[in-house]
Computed example of a mutant assay.
Amino acid sequence: MFDTESPQLPVTTKQRPRTTGDLWNPSAANPTTVPVPLPVVVVRVDGPFTALDRKLWLALVHIAFPDLDKPGKIHEILISEIIDLFRRVGGRRDLGAKGTLQLTKKLSENTEAATLWQSIRRLAKTTIEWEDDDYMGINSLLGARMDKDARNSGKLYFTFDPLLAQHVLAPRAWARLNVHVVMKLRSKYAVTLYEILEAYANRENKTCTATIDELRAWLKVPDDAYQSWKDFRRNVVDIAVEEINTYADLAGFSVEYEGIREGKAFTKIKFTVAKTDGRQERETMLGRKAVIHKRRARAIAGLADPDNPPMPSGDALDAFRRKWPGNDPYEVIGLFQDKWRGAGCTVIRSPDGAFLKFAEGMFKARAKKGRVAA
């Protein structure tokens, strides 16, 4: 149910995903990514949604992401900055040209950056249907000011529907899309296929199997186009896969595929994703940083890392052997560390002193128990 105090859907993830990287400065070491929930990637989309529109939408999500949880927030960006971004990253030089902008069926105007404004208009007219285990929704992908004053200001004023924004902010499973990879891809089919397959790169099972009809629907291949497997493979799948593999180092994965027959006809297609060495190295490094960050956070909170228990020094072990000869110090260390975890992993300033004090108490308790038994 909806909260009557807020138009937002309840957040169900423990920690909301975030964007990474700098949109304006591509970097292989720090990729520019947007976490997009799977229902947004693989869902029914109705409208004139082109490859350019997909790229622009993803860039605008990255720009607005820090404020997506603020209902009604109007974001703004200079049109010149968007044009420069597409020129530097994607190589497109036509977005800033003057041309005709079709505002309605009967109304058109000559304007600067006509191609870019047409893309913005198409995004506003494109609807997306999404659903998961708990919710179903339908939204426009974008809201934007299209009046002449706004265009003459040189800025784009845009919004995201609060429901769609909340769904982007609190997905249960998402694909982390590299904005610069999407901008570099030329084929509209490559853009969509990349978005779909990125979701499989971090899975244990890195294969995606779909029927040909499902894949055609995902890629929005016209019903009357490439109806034979041979034409579909040559004009859609091969081109998309080749483009993705061209940018494998930047995307972080490569892809192979095979057609699956049922009888004499190909009815399914199986894609297999493999991470690049560079991506695996980055993820290993990020994992180490996450561990360090967790340890620092626990230390600030007065808690130690349960996976890094206190360990007495060699001097403490020598003292143990002199005081309690014939006893195994490492057995006592294990008991000492178990007690430390059971007590909540508090920070111990002097592991040597704490260990020897624990050992003394343990042996006194054993001696007392032995006297009572006798």
Rank of each mutant, 00 (worst) to 15 (best):
F86E: 10
H75C: 07
G91E: 05
V89T: 15
V61D: 02
P48W: 08
D67L: 05
I74L: 10
F49I: 05
R54F: 11
P66V: 04
P39M: 06
D84A: 15
A51P: 05
I77G: 00
K73C: 07
F86L: 09
P39S: 08
L52A: 11
F86C: 05
D84K: 10
P48C: 02
E81I: 02
I79M: 03
A59L: 10
E76N: 14
L58T: 14
K55E: 13
D53T: 05
D46Y: 05
A51E: 14
I74Q: 13
R54W: 10
V89S: 13
T50D: 14
G91T: 09
L58K: 04
K73I: 01
D46I: 10
V61I: 15
D69G: 14
L85E: 08
L60T: 01
K55P: 02
A59G: 13
I82V: 13
L78G: 10
P37N: 10
V45P: 00
E76I: 00
F86T: 06
D67F: 06
L56M: 02
F49L: 14
H75D: 12
H75R: 05
D46R: 09
I74Y: 06
R54M: 12
K70P: 00
K73M: 09
I82M: 14
V42P: 03
V89A: 14
K70G: 00
I83L: 04
F65T: 01
L85P: 09
P66F: 05
V41G: 06
V43E: 09
F65P: 00
I79V: 09
I79P: 00
R44T: 08
R87L: 11
L78I: 01
V89E: 11
I79F: 00
K70F: 01
L85K: 11
H75V: 05
W57V: 07
D53G: 14
W57L: 14
H75K: 07
D69N: 13
L38C: 09
V89L: 09
L38S: 11
F49M: 12
A64I: 03
S80C: 02
L68N: 05
L58D: 09
L68C: 07
K70N: 09
L56K: 00
